[in-house]
Design a protein around this nucleic acid. Sequence first.
DNA 1: TGGCGCACTGTGAACGTTCACAGAGATTTC
DNA 2: GAAATCTCTGTGAACGTTCACAGTGCGCCA
Lengths: 337, 337
Amino acid sequence: MAVTNKRRPTIHDVARASGVSRGTVSRALNGDPYVSTAALAAVKRAVAETGYVVNRAARSLVTQRTGTVVMVLSEPQEKLFEDPNFSVLLRVATRRLAQRDVALVMMVAGDDGDRERVIRYLRGGHADGVLLLSAHSGDPLLAELDGLSIPAVACGAVLGREGVIPYAAADDREGARQMTQYLVDQGRRKIATITGPLDTPGGLNRLEGFCDVLGRKAVKKLIAHGDYSRHSGETAMAELLDRTPDLDAVFVGSDLMAAGALAVLRARGRRVPEDVAVGGFDDSAIASSTHPRLTTVRQPLEQVATETVRLLLELIDGAETVTPVVLPTELVTRESA
Amino acid sequence: MAVTNKRRPTIHDVARASGVSRGTVSRALNGDPYVSTAALAAVKRAVAETGYVVNRAARSLVTQRTGTVVMVLSEPQEKLFEDPNFSVLLRVATRRLAQRDVALVMMVAGDDGDRERVIRYLRGGHADGVLLLSAHSGDPLLAELDGLSIPAVACGAVLGREGVIPYAAADDREGARQMTQYLVDQGRRKIATITGPLDTPGGLNRLEGFCDVLGRKAVKKLIAHGDYSRHSGETAMAELLDRTPDLDAVFVGSDLMAAGALAVLRARGRRVPEDVAVGGFDDSAIASSTHPRLTTVRQPLEQVATETVRLLLELIDGAETVTPVVLPTELVTRESA
DNA sequence: TGGCGCACTGTGAACGTTCACAGAGATTTC
DNA sequence: GAAATCTCTGTGAACGTTCACAGTGCGCCA
């Protein structure tokens, strides 16, 4: 395997070792059908012998392809990195892309400087595609992306751009309906909700689903807003209790906020689920570590991630357009409702 | 800004636009001191005008540098990705490297196939350095890395290789001493511990610190082992209670395991901290969301990550050796002890 | 038998940089 | 005043691939 050799073996070395020409080696390596079985075998042997690995820089210089995809995190970092969903996405994406020998580069686009870096990177043609994570509707990055004509796919819809940026996502609205209906079926009568930010699909669509079941006017006073953080869940819950002390259920837009809500309910002397039923969303790890454990809506995150990557690869492979994917959610009942 | 132009501008275009030669443009762009101020200004203007971005592939073809660093996750993925510490590391590393215009590529080395891919990537010279995350002592990747002569740095020591792979880490042992001593000072007399895996520095060194304070022989019966998962914390706690029903404190090797331990203590009718004091380790987000909130040992994770990146960059820049960095921990007291 | 297509192979050019070198002026040194 | 030095510049070659093109046999068909 000649690892100790200082110079890395090139395609010329393989050509020499296998007794064929540079061109034939290249063809053999890239699966061109016009290669004799003898030549193919010789090349394979020579590759093993020399420990040859293709030089991506040289290749991409001529092919104009990089074998690289960028995952752009356009959230203020702190928040995103603590989102348990993010790890699932990252894990799945890494694996799926690796299977195709595509490298995943991480970039953060929190402030203007970051964003400028991302754009420069993309404009330089250093990546074949972009994986957008939790991009808000007004994100300036999106506008810049438009002028770049580089394949881009979002994980979770980008509000206001559903038609232009393909995405894979869970069916937030239907999930919220399931949970709300469940609370109704349990005999709850005064059901409130704590939403995520309304400029995110999760914030907006889960509220829509909630309203679908109960009627928009009926719940006007029973809505409070959070930002997905635990703390905002606490604040919103306190607000709801002040406003409507006799509420008997609350549908919270994320498990983390629900954990905050649980703490406030306990502090205010409400028993869960006897006095107030609590429903979450995500079915993240935290859902089964609260007390009582959360009844929540499970998102098929692994599938979402898988589909997102699939869409992107299709675009990179030349597909003109791809159709967004929306995946079904599932109600998971535990003790909190 | 000519974004609409199909062909990406090259250094030739910049040369033409600025009226100097290719070589001068290259020098201006790379900070060579032998460039007249006039030429420098002309080049800068031309770059802005044409929207030129250097082609990394072409550059690295001649420089043999890639401007890329690989973060290798050598843990079975599921576990690692849920480790809250991981997100901090990722966040900080991304940012620090971006500041130097170095791209961060994520790779997973969970099974043999993954590992082979990582090695091939590195052997192909596609990265300038490696950032190792939570590598166990027996990891086969480490052996392969040796033969590759590529700068590598670990985040957290790699047991048995402290001398060969530089690292930055928190002072696990001293942190464990602080916590154990604190429990003693609080008047606790039967103090048990739940460790992490003993082939990780956190598992081993925190146990060492615990023994430093109490004496190895004295605690023989008061040690149980976990694997950092919440579930393992539950199992270990149950085991300890069975073995030593009258224990009055437990130092748990991670917050997540401590959360599990809390659940078991409650189920077994022990009040925390009245009957049993519980101490954690990490000061992760979970520490302040348990009930009662955890007294724990804070690791300066951001600093650890920063230092890890710094060490790697120094090696890449040509430093022959660098000295490992060990950072102090801090006791954070809340309600659980 | 001559021409044609088919399977396969080798070769030159190109991709966009950087680097080493050589040379041109200006400035200093002896 | 010539030589040496210093600052700045342009040019050719190289990095390791792939791609287009031009070939070379070989079998097949008319």
